[in-house]
Design a protein around this nucleic acid. Structure first.
Lengths: 121, 121, 121, 121
DNA sequence: GTGGTCTAGACCACC
DNA sequence: GTGGTCTAGACCACA
């Protein structure tokens, strides 16, 4: 589990952790049911406080990406059911991205290509 | 110029203003060279501090979306040149969105459709 | 004896076991004097540690719901005497539930109906 | 704003704060739109850490009981919409309470009376 | 002024 | 071993 954190930027660390774990799940690094690193272990590894990692895990749990089994720590849970909510979120964020792209002179085709690349990896 | 601000959410007000102006430019509400509303007028209209609007305008200026002229206020400037930078930014954000979509069970086709809709409006 | 355990939630396993046994007693699944499943048997059945079941049983014993006999295991004991204590506990918890219900727009009648349903089954 | 906290018990402090604020809202101590005490002020008043109060507020926000307006701090928000969810929660908790009451020898009438008292205050 | 984030430690409950 | 909670500070972003 490699983690690239930007301590200078304005994005909270816990958010960066959350994002990268979501990425990892989407990329198949973690499969449904896999155990995530223990909070302390991950905190030590990347050199941050356990509370920060804890917050990231809580966020992931709340969003339904993981469940924390009291016996085994945190496990990935890919069960759907969030499709609608995610769709709305994606829709809204895409709108802004598309606007910025349009102004920057990125054509519809180029934008579609970027989207495809992002999805297919 | 209608502005919908969410004072509760986690997105800063100035960021919301910036986003909506970018949207408006992309949608053709403002054309290249058009004058943006005066800071004080906009602040009064939506009932916020002028400092907040000022910060949004400074952000837009810094990003190259507008130029400020002491005599005429802020004017939209659609000159290109930022294509590469925007492309990198869009690429990065798309990656996360695509990941979330993938996990939620949104197919590549559905995602592409959302992207097209976002771009074409 | 069916046991539905939620390993993800915040309620401790032993508490869930305790709750479900109390439910079963109230529902007449276990009558006064009936033997509860042996600790090890129950632990095996639901796939948890015997220590956890043991803790649940100790809690039940301490609350006066069961008595443990070295030779015969745990037996249900419906002897009263706890009425006052339970009343106080119920009173306090009802207060919070009623508050949440009130805020959510649940009327007094609806709340009473829910209460009746809970009691009559 | 009086707060009675039990530091010895097993109920987390942030949960106790959350509960008492919900109670206060239901009792009309706080009306829709009223400002809650500032996190620091409340923390100082009851002699606990700001993080703990913060967690309580986050929980309330997440449950929809309050909104945090960036300009003014936390405000009560009684807008409904949570009726169904609360109903399910109340239903489930009532079931256990009713079971305990039944075993303790509390009659259906007595239980109904307790419920009425809890709701009407 | 407000809330949001983070640290470096600590203790506890659970299993 | 795990996650959950809490402390006593600190700094920052926002308005």
């Amino acid at each position: 589990m490699i983690m690239k954190l930007d301590f200078a930027g304005s994005v909270p660390i816990y958010q960066q952790i959350r994002d990268q774990i979501v990425q990892a799940v989407a990329d198949g690094v973690f499969l449904d049911g896999d155990r995530l690193p223990a909070i302390r272990a991950l905190a030590d590894e990347v050199g941050i406080n356990t509370m920060t990692v804890n917050k990231a895990y809580q966020l992931l749990k709340q969003e339904g990406y993981i469940i924390t089994d009291r016996r085994n720590g945190a496990k990935v849970q890919c069960s759907g059911g969030r499709k609608q909510a995610v769709e709305r979120k994606v829709e809204k964020e895409l709108e802004l991205l598309a606007a910025e792209a349009k102004i920057a002179g990125i054509s519809g085709e180029e934008f579609a290509k970027l989207c495809r690349k992002a999805y297919d990896g």
